[in-house]
Write a protein that binds this DNA or RNA. Structure first.
Length: 570
DNA sequence: GCCGTTTTCGGCCCGACTGTTTTCAGTCG
């Protein structure tokens, strides 16, 4: 699928145009088109094949001009307009822009004055103190740039589970049809559903490793082959991540899957138990002397060790093995247990689709109810709603509910928590809503005590039911703000405030916080934060995160039927 | 460059914050 490739080019064009002082609306048109393409469920190439340039123009945000450019890309593999921009200013704009505090204008100055083309050049110049003397820059900016680079480096090498998901899909698409592959499963931290993943571990059962390895090393997204043998091969993929493939016999599949799923600490603990019982556990099986007593399935291996089956999401050696011996393992919330979604945006603010379209998409995703939570007025860039518009939206929702079947739309909002802890919508208007979520969108750098106090103030408002993305982080992009999560959990308990597990790009709360909250008896919800219909798929990752936090159905309020869920709210 | 059940031309989300300045450009959301 070329949707993301093209989206990335359009994003870069937008940066270039902004550098060139192009009118802001044109820049935005490119940005919008990029978002639209990236979130498009269908393959843009298929769209074009079926309906030509006219069908491309049916995609929201794509008009005549961009449709032609997309056609050019599909036909020739490049867009000349973009190539020319890149030639004129040969700068890695998308990497540089990813550094906080750097935008198109600053990138332009850095290139013009210091010939900075990439992050490496930038770091050198910043360390040499060359940036602070530039006009419009200063000491503080230079420090911020270095901090930004530091953060970028730390997250380099690990990919978010969202990024890896599409790479895994692509690998499966290419390998599943290969003859001789009896079983294929992606193990490793991907299978444990960790929020970030270092490399992709693929396990295959086959009697014909040669064919499998040939297919693996010649996949079209392979950039380099590091090693190729009969049981193990390693490649670097064009997406920038490494992938390992191992072929094992069917009799060892369970043991191998267990071994390669990890975590390492979990495996070490299992091997210890084996040793205590006079057994030996390795990737080929559980052995008594030279005799294999288990190994074909993971269930066999756990059973033979005297344990209950432990779900991959729990395998971090943080108590699951002790619990597995005493049947104290949680009955984790299932991947199809959600009945509702309590945060999503529509085209009333920064979402791309109407309330009705989102409701229909939610129904298709298997949900029974959704809460509309458009932004509120102080978030001006999204066109946040004021009291009047909220009321109007409520009326609209009423109409839609009368029209739709099988899905209930609830009235809500994502209310902004201001610097002083007040909300930007008055209580009278909040009372009219079914459910209110509150969250922080500005002043992230407040000291711990202040930002905690600010959040607690919002939670203590009797109209606020849910605290959305409680720590403000975005995976690999923005650090959480310095907030006292224990205190948040305590007050969530005493005020009956629900804490959110926000799925889309955030995974906030994170797994250990989820576990802390559950232990304290706090209720949680898993939300998509969808801005477009395809975003509902993020719920699966949110559920995974909840499972990593040992969450059961009883802990997650939107896994409950609507009436029961409503009853527990403030 | 996109878009249209008020429009095929003339609109298109804009306020807060930061760090630089001494009145504001750039960035972020």
């Amino acid at each position: 699928m070329k949707n993301h490739e093209i989206a990335k080019i359009l994003e870069e064009v937008a940066i270039y145009l902004e550098m060139e002082d192009e009118i802001v609306f044109k820049v935005r048109a490119y940005e919008n088109a990029a978002v639209s393409l990236a979130s498009l469920a269908e393959d843009v190439e298929e769209v074009y094949k079926k309906g030509g340039i006219g069908a491309l123009q049916e995609i929201p945000g794509i008009g005549k001009g961009l449709a032609e450019k997309i056609e050019e890309y599909l036909k020739t593999g490049k867009i000349q307009f973009y190539e020319d921009l890149k030639k004129k200013v040969p700068v890695d704009v998308s990497s540089l822009k990813r550094i906080e505090s750097l935008g198109p204008k600053k990138i332009k100055v850095l290139y013009k004055k210091l010939k900075i083309k990439n992050v490496e050049d930038l770091e050198k110049a910043a360390k040499a103190g060359k940036i602070r003397v530039l006009e419009g820059f200063g000491k503080k900016t230079e420090q911020n740039i270095l901090k930004g680079i530091e953060f970028m480096k730390k997250s380099r090498g690990r990919f978010t589970i969202f990024e890896v998901e599409s790479v895994v899909r692509e690998i499966e698409r290419q390998l599943k049809p290969v003859k001789g592959i009896e079983k294929l499963i992606v193990a490793g931290s991907y299978r444990r559903r960790k929020e970030t993943i270092g490399d992709i571990d693929i396990l295959v059962v086959s009697k014909n490793p040669g064919i499998v390895m040939d297919a693996f090393t010649s996949m079209k997204n392979v950039a380099a082959v590091y090693g190729k043998g009969n049981t193990k091969s390693t490649v670097r993929l064009k997406e920038g991540i490494d992938a390992d493939l191992r072929v094992v016999p069917a009799t060892s599949f369970g043991a191998a899957l267990n071994y390669f799923t990890g975590s390492k600490d979990h495996n070490i603990a299992l091997r210890k138990i084996a040793l205590e019982n006079g057994l030996k556990l390795n990737e080929y099986g559980l052995f008594h002397g030279t005799k294999q007593i288990a190994g074909a399935t993971e269930e066999d291996v756990y059973r033979a060790l005297g344990l209950h089956y432990i779900e991959p999401e729990l395998r971090e050696n943080t108590g699951e093995i002790e619990a597995g011996g005493k049947t104290r393992l949680p009955k984790l919330i299932g991947y199809s247990d959600l009945k509702g979604d309590l945060q999503l945006q529509t085209n009333w603010t920064d979402g791309s689709h109407s309330i009705e379209a989102m409701a229909l998409a939610a129904k298709k995703a298997g949900l029974e109810y959704i809460l509309i939570t458009d932004h509120t007025k102080s978030l001006a860039m999204t066109g946040g709603l004021d009291e009047k518009k909220l009321k109007k939206q409520g009326e609209e929702i009423g109409k839609i509910n009368r029209k739709l079947d099988g899905i209930t739309v609830l009235k809500g909002a994502e209310v902004n928590i201001m610097k002083d802890g007040s909300l930007d919508i008055d209580d009278r208007a909040l009372k009219e809503l079914d459910i209110v979520g509150a969250s922080i969108h500005s002043n992230f750098n407040m000291p711990r005590a202040d930002i905690t106090k600010r959040t607690l103030a919002a939670m203590e408002n009797p109209n606020v039911d849910i605290l959305f993305h409680p720590t403000g982080r975005i995976l690999n992009k923005r650090k959480p703000f310095d907030i006292d999560i224990e205190q948040i959990i305590n007050v969530a308990k005493s005020t009956g405030t629900v804490l959110e597990i926000n799925s889309l790009q955030r995974l906030d709360l994170k797994d250990e916080h989820i576990r802390m909250a559950i232990k304290a008896g706090v209720k949680l919800c898993i939300d998509s934060d969808a801005h477009t219909p395809s975003h509902f798929s993020a719920l699966q990752v949110g559920i995974a995160q909840a499972r990593r936090g040992w969450a059961e159905k009883k802990d997650i309020i939107n896994a409950w039927p609507l009436e029961k869920m409503k009853k527990m709210l403030k």
